[in-house]
């Protein structure tokens, strides 16, 4: 296999609080290959966004990387600071957030924002950049791109704005795009458009995409591989079809079984008892053990199970549990 675009090795993020240190990301490792969409899924507080923010160096102090390595195209980036990180962020990593308005400068025409970004990171002339800006907007499916480059962000609808953000994220031709809940604020019909767009761009350009979401349906349709996170740790990592149809980790299984499925009508929903532990009260051993139907004493004690070779970080991975 080719070298991965992004490689995260045993990454931990810590936040010191007055009640002690909490670890929103705890020993997470995964790779993303070129042209691949990796889904990061988990419930709120699972640490999925925090992991993405760590990669782009956008952790809010006092949160910091306490352990592990992040490699981008063979270069180690977790210790980069200030200017070096900022250059890298624009050039090699594109970002798409939930709320498109936060990624766009409301006072600049979108054409200018695209041209500025391209001229900062690519060695091209202004005329060339302007031409490419129109092309970029056409590529993300904005009708009348040649005129719309002169519009301001507020003149676009929510779905169109998210397209502009995607164009902006891709215009410097990054090798990695981090999309954090890119469709959560959008309506179903627009969401389908954005997912289709992300997939097409990823395939055509060979960009690696980290797609962070809580929506299993989006994961199923958009991603190639999926990482399931629970309480800051990786619970399961594998190809999306395997993980969703034959989950090996009891948490993934519970998550899938508790989602109402169109094909199953009005059956009673499976429930996982309880809720995800708060980060300042993660239980010893496997974080899922108090809610797990299969937990034994082994699960309640340190050390925690790690993904090593296998798909699920579990002492007793499920076999042949078909969900869908």
């Amino acid at each position: 296999m080719a070298d991965p675009v992004l490689s995260i090795r045993d990454l931990s993020v810590e936040i010191p609080t007055r009640h002690g240190i909490v670890r929103p990301v705890d020993g997470v490792s995964y790779d993303i290959q070129a042209g691949e969409i990796l889904g990061i899924v988990g419930e709120s507080g699972a640490g999925k966004s925090m992991a993405g923010n760590a990669v782009i160096g956008l952790l809010n102090p006092p949160a910091h990387i306490s352990k592990g390595e992040i490699w981008l195209n063979g270069q180690r980036i977790d210790h980069l600071k200030g200017d070096a990180m900022r250059r890298l962020r624009g050039k090699e990593i594109g970002m798409v957030f939930q709320d498109p308005l936060t990624s766009l400068n409301p006072l600049l025409r979108i054409g200018d924002q695209l041209t500025e970004t391209m001229m900062t990171h690519l060695t091209i002339s202004r005329a060339e950049a302007e031409k490419r800006a129109v092309a970029a907007l056409e590529e993300v499916g904005i009708p009348g791109a040649a005129e719309r480059v002169n519009s301001y962000p507020h003149e676009f609808s929510g779905g169109m704005r998210q397209r502009v953000v995607i164009a902006l994220a891709l215009c410097a031709e990054p090798s990695l795009v981090i999309a954090d809940e890119p469709t959560t604020a959008l309506d179903v019909s627009v969401q389908a458009q954005i997912i289709a767009l992300l997939r097409r761009l990823c395939r055509d350009r060979g960009t690696a995409v980290m797609l962070i979401t809580h929506d299993m349906g989006v994961i199923a349709e958009a991603t190639d591989r999926v990482a399931v996170m629970y309480a800051g740790r990786l619970a399961e990592l594998g190809s999306v079809r395997d993980v969703l149809t034959h989950p090996q980790h009891p948490y993934t299984h519970g998550l899938m079984a508790s989602t109402p499925l169109a094909s199953q009508g009005k059956r009673r929903l499976h429930q996982i008892p309880g809720a995800m532990p708060r980060l300042d009260a993660v239980p010893d051993g496997c974080a899922f053990n108090p809610r797990c139907p299969h937990a034994t004493d082994k699960c309640r004690q340190a050390p925690l199970p790690r993904l090593s070779g296998g798909r699920a970080a579990c002492w007793y991975p499920l076999v042949d549990e078909k969900v869908i």
Binding site: P273, G274, A275, M276, P277, R278, P290, R291
Partner: peptide, 8 residues
Amino acid sequence: MSDFPIPV
């Protein structure tokens, strides 16, 4: 049926 116990 009960949620996770937050200390009572």
